[in-house]
């Protein structure tokens, strides 16, 4: 039974959500019995900026380089998820299957080489 094992995952999910809520509930209770300070004011609830007021809006445009790294990550993740079924059956198979996988990986390694050559992997230029 495959599904039976995943019922246990569901139980663990419920407990994993409950576990950090316990200390948070303790913190909430402390505020209920007036043991924990809970008087926020304008300065306390402003964002932390090393003593000066925040100058500009926070949500600014970021470099497109981050997007490239994320895309590279997605591509290699998909590659790995394709390779895991091969890894499991590999010990039962001969060398011929290795060549098929080699073509798959070399095509992607060419992409990595291309990115390297055009300096897309430099964090700072």
């Amino acid at each position: 039974m495959i599904v039976e094992q995943y019922v246990r995952v569901l139980i663990l999910v419920i407990l994993a959500i409950a576990f950090p809520l316990l200390p948070l509930a303790g913190s909430y209770l402390f505020s209920k019995i007036n043991y924990r300070p809970a008087n926020s004011n304008e300065i306390k609830s402003s964002i932390y900026e090393c003593g000066v007021e925040a100058a500009d809006i926070t949500w600014r445009q970021f470099n497109a380089k981050y997007f490239l790294y994320a895309l590279g990550f997605v591509i290699f993740d998909v590659e790995v998820i394709f390779l895991f079924p091969w890894a499991v059956i590999h010990t039962e198979q001969a060398f011929s299957i290795l060549i098929k996988v080699a073509i798959f990986v070399i095509v992607l390694a060419f992409g990595l080489f291309y990115a390297w050559r055009w300096r897309a992997l430099e964090w700072q230029q």
Partner: peptide, 27 residues
């Protein structure tokens, strides 16, 4: 994946390569 659908498996890598090259040309 490595027997009957090997063509799709290899084409997937070419698709991924094109995605990477496209992203590099954007960046």
């Amino acid at each position: 994946l490595l027997g009957k659908y090997i063509i799709a498996f290899e084409l997937a890598s070419i698709l991924l390569l094109f995605a990477l090259i496209g992203a590099i040309s954007i960046v």
